[in-house]
Design a protein around this nucleic acid. Structure first.
Lengths: 172, 172
DNA sequence: TACATTTCTTAAGGTATCTTATTTTTTACC
DNA sequence: GGTAAAAAATAAGATACCTTAAGAAATGTA
């Protein structure tokens, strides 16, 4: 095989679960319309969001998809969606693609890695207010589009606390 | 050029700074002996560690090295080191390498990305005690080798608090 | 339009983690 | 081997963030 094979579009309603924590990822999801989230639920039932995937983003559990190990996240639609599925069976080994495709994949991984590292630095060194400001600057459209509680689960605070952050910021 | 060109070994003493926050990364550092750290210092002078690089690890500021933008981290030896330098001038475009090299690079990025994502999940959802336990399990040799305050700066707590974590864990 | 459901806000009290300061232990080096 | 410097431990008080609970606003739906 030379290039990445992409299956035809599927449609999903808001709230559908495409991958469950603990299952093995069979697909990568390429979002054409709508938005997905990948997240974990911890022992006390609290949700933590790893990633949002709006239009043109790709999402999966990379470790589970690559190595066929249990997924550490669940993936769920948070709006009505149209999504292209990339099947693991069409993506066995990176080696099977043309060089230019591999270059694209490498660049994509690299960009993702740079973004993930920025997020780690933010989680280590920034206050929650600063992380919220960073989020609004990095994803201005998502701020409008997503409910507060999902943004809170992404930046790592409770919805109640984020509500307080917003109130205090508005006062200035 | 077909494969990655690696310059000859250089030796450094403990405490030498190879890259400064704000500078543009000219090199990637492949550690042959010793250990490096990449870290930021925030406005109030507190250190936050992005990564440790012991033997056979590669370290740089990927964004700075790739896109020649100012580095967000500094890189410093934390032991006496022997290090191979990979020069940006020998690594202009991923496209210039043989396919098998690109595949290796893509796999390396992917593995790093998987590890970074695990760390994000830990920072979002685990207690600091759990993050410390995870660290001791993931890097058992480093736990012996590194001073407590560096481990604290990596897992995201103060040295004083990590000292307390250890004391409480010892009591069980 | 109205009812139910979900989301958001507010506030009080609690816990995890930090700050600062002091003492003890370990490490570096003349 | 002794002394200076760095690291680690300990503890008291401060702060950021969480929990719980209740009411208000927004949203979905019959």
């Amino acid at each position: 095989m030379k290039s990445i094979k992409i299956n035809t579009l599927k449609t999903y309603k808001k709230g559908e679960i495409l991958l469950k924590q603990g299952e093995i990822a069979k697909y990568g999801y390429l979002v054409k319309k709508g938005c997905l989230k990948s997240y974990t639920v911890d022992k006390v039932g609290k949700e933590h969001i790893m990633q949002f995937a709006p239009e043109n983003w790709m999402i999966s559990d990379l470790d589970s998809f690559t190595n066929q190990v249990p997924s550490s996240v669940s993936i769920e639609t948070i709006e009505d969606c149209e999504i292209s599925l990339i099947s693991k069976s069409d993506f066995k080994d990176i080696d099977s693609f043309d060089k230019e495709v591999v270059v694209d994949i490498a660049n994509k991984f690299r960009n993702n890695l740079i973004a993930s590292n920025k997020r780690i630095l933010g989680l280590l060194s920034a206050t929650s207010e600063q992380r919220y400001i960073d989020f609004t600057e990095t994803y201005p459209t998502l701020v409008q589009r997503l409910p507060l509680k999902l943004i809170a689960a992404y930046i790592g605070v409770t919805p109640e606390y984020l509500s307080g952050i917003r109130r205090r910021m508005a006062k200035k």
